[in-house]
């Protein structure tokens, strides 16, 4: 089996850097992608498409930390864009698996399956917002930056998504303490207030 083949003309060092980056980060990226897509194959497709963009921009990215942020942003954008382009067969809340009465491992597995199904029943942008906030532990500002939306929109998506999850899983511990208002928010509100006067 032959190894990866870089586009012709690519400097070998750049290719090596990229492959090191993929090896180091693909696990974390695939984990988030699996939450978003609900299928391992689709998750790998999504990550590969994001990595293809990253490779095309590698000359500009140049640093692994920057590349990971770029890949993550790309992945979330591709996920939402695809949902918009093709109305994906979403799992509706009526099709959620029965809540299990089992105990121990079986119960834990059943809960995961049910929560994942409920997560997949959400619109892609709500799902992405919840995964960024609750799985990737991003702040509201950081999650909004990744999704390229205002913090208010991000907050609204999270709240609507959680509301729907809560209907199926009232005992799940949800919610965050709100972060204090950042300097940019104060400046923004100040400028907005002046303009509205």
């Amino acid at each position: 089996m032959s190894g990866p083949t870089a586009p012709s003309g690519a400097p070998p060092t750049r290719q090596t850097e990229f492959e090191d980056f993929v090896r180091a980060r693909s696990g974390a990226l695939c984990a988030a992608a699996y939450l978003l897509t609900g299928d391992r194959g689709l998750a790998e497709d999504l990550v590969q498409d994001a990595l293809a963009r990253t490779w095309r921009s590698w000359k500009r990215l140049h640093r692994t930390a920057n590349a990971e942020a770029y890949t993550r942003r790309t992945m979330y954008h591709l996920h939402v864009s695809r949902w918009r382009r093709r109305k994906v067969a979403e799992i509706t809340s009526e099709e959620l698996p029965e809540r299990a009465d089992e105990s121990g491992d079986e119960s834990e597995t059943a809960l995961r399956v049910a929560v994942h199904a409920a997560l997949l029943s959400l619109p892609a942008n709500q799902r992405a917002a919840i995964v960024l906030r609750y799985f990737e532990d991003h702040t509201e500002a950081s999650a909004a930056a990744i999704l390229d939306c205002p913090v208010t929109t991000l907050r609204s998506r999270v709240q609507r998504g959680l509301r729907r999850l809560r209907r199926s899983f009232p005992d799940l511990v949800l919610g965050f303490a709100e972060a204090p208002t950042a300097a940019w928010e104060r400046e923004f509100e100040h400028a907005r207030g002046e303009s509205n006067e």
Partner: peptide, 30 residues
């Protein structure tokens, strides 16, 4: 009383091991 964070981490662990050489696929898609 599971937290949603713990449950999501549990779900994600099922999909965190890519089966393929993702770099090769990325080159092809690029």
């Amino acid at each position: 009383n599971d937290s949603i964070r713990e449950v999501l981490q549990g779900i994600a662990s099922d999909g965190s091991a890519p089966s393929d050489d993702l770099a090769a696929g990325a080159y092809k898609r690029a």
